[in-house]
Design a protein around this nucleic acid. Structure first.
Lengths: 250, 250
DNA sequence: GAAGTTTTTTGAAAGAATTTGAACGATATT
DNA sequence: AATATCGTTCAAATTCTTTCAAAAAACTTC
């Protein structure tokens, strides 16, 4: 059995069981304990799995989103800068859609500079913050998704279809040249797609850590939106620029 | 069984039951008492749960205290007691409407005991808390009122007209024999009226400090609802009882 | 193409580190 | 006071890392 074959078996087991014991791999591969330990180490080095005592664990499945609180605390300064630039794209009297997502939230403090704004959002957290800043806000109805505190579902879709936005601002869980913009939850994905359709202009906010990340459900091509992000690796930036509008934040 | 597997089982049980007894975990995992104690300790150290005597509990108490502003914290124990009694009126599988208002919020922690609940609320703050407790929640659309973070307006009215609730739980700014239940904002008042109309049963939660307070807009007569409150002055209580159902909380 | 050499991969062994279950006194609950 | 639960300690069992030599593969040289 080749090394590659064993690696494949291990990853396959992980896909199915989320956790795999080292001793269970011995009969499955016919290899010795030592060899399998080395395999696990190799796979951990390229972030394909996480070793735990007695075996290995999936690094994080595509469907599982990290909890909002953990996600929110990292990349704080970048997000503030991105939020400031995004807010600067808004004009007085406009109607804008704000997606759920921690990065979007950083726009809100900068929005008070604009007068007579009307904000539509599907995020309960955003709504609460918008109320604190006394910005006129409307929530379309929907089912509350507890993990992200976003509203989703058919009611939301039906409502959005009757609206039209000057601009919409969306978050993303990943973007890449091949796969475009992606997010784990198909339901949230279709809300994003609809928001884009109903908007004159689309902005997607993302810190550069999301680059080359691919999640389950694609909601837009790179060319469909203006990406607002902090600096990307130089050569990648060139590549991206052929496909889409990018605003880099310093 | 690996440590990580046990941890997953424990957290899964907590998601479902919100409380888990240590002894129930022994057959579920096949591990010894000692091992499970260590597991609970580990999980508590990374804030995944809260240990309690005999087992563990979901960690969510964070939101209970700080969400409330100055005046909200005065009658804290009363409100908790009122919330507990109100929640005890709910049955499994019911559809209930929760109003905005700080007293209502105290119901939410006690709602986790009920299974397959569907909660409709017009309060963004309630929604956020309900999501934390992983209770199925639906928000009708509406304009966000920044002072109370409640949703109001014609969209809300239209949506509510198509719903029907087993029970609704409302807050009030004042109640008296002559004027019934009153609140300052006519828009919120009409939402409350509609919620009552669409419900089989109406409960109004109020600490006794609201007695004899009269606000601008009346939304119900005393006889239209069951009042859940802490103890009233005795003679008043007698008077009230002729008009309406009162549940006193001690 | 064969024999020899180097490199890589493999399995086994030894000692270190971790995990586990049981015991026991301390603490909390009734 | 009686019962149940808790934290601590300790020895046994399991797993991990490191090391080393044998086997396999790749590469040289003739």
């Amino acid at each position: 059995m080749l090394t590659e074959e064993r690696h494949q078996i291990i990853l396959e087991q992980l896909k199915v069981h989320n956790i795999v014991k080292l001793h269970d791999l011995i009969p499955l591969t016919g290899a010795s304990e030592s060899t399998l330990r080395r395999d696990l180490q190799d796979l951990e080095n390229c972030h394909k799995l996480l070793r735990i005592h007695g075996g290995a664990q999936n690094v994080i499945s595509l469907h599982e989103e990290p909890a909002l609180s953990q996600k929110a605390s990292i990349h704080l300064d970048e997000k503030k800068a991105i939020g400031r630039v995004a807010a600067s794209q808004v004009r007085n009297q406009e109607v804008i859609f704000l997606d759920s997502g921690s990065t979007i939230q950083f726009m809100i403090p900068y929005l008070i500079e604009h007068k007579n704004l009307l904000v539509i959002t599907n995020s309960v957290d955003n709504a609460s913050m918008l109320a604190d800043y006394d910005i006129e806000t409307f929530l379309p109805g929907g089912k509350l998704k507890s993990s992200t505190k976003a509203l989703v579902g058919s009611t939301m879709v039906q409502t959005l279809e009757t609206y039209h936005f000057d601009k919409c601002f969306l978050g993303t869980n990943g973007f890449s040249i091949e796969s475009g913009y992606t997010t784990p939850d198909p339901e949230e994905s279709s809300i994003k797609q609809l928001a884009i359709k109903q908007s004159n202009q689309t902005f997607i906010l993302s810190d550069s850590s999301k680059y080359c990340q691919v999640s389950f459900s694609k909601f837009a091509d790179l060319k469909d939106a203006t990406l607002i992000t902090n600096e990307l690796p130089v050569k990648e930036s060139v590549l991206l620029n052929k496909e889409t509008k990018v605003m880099e934040v310093n």
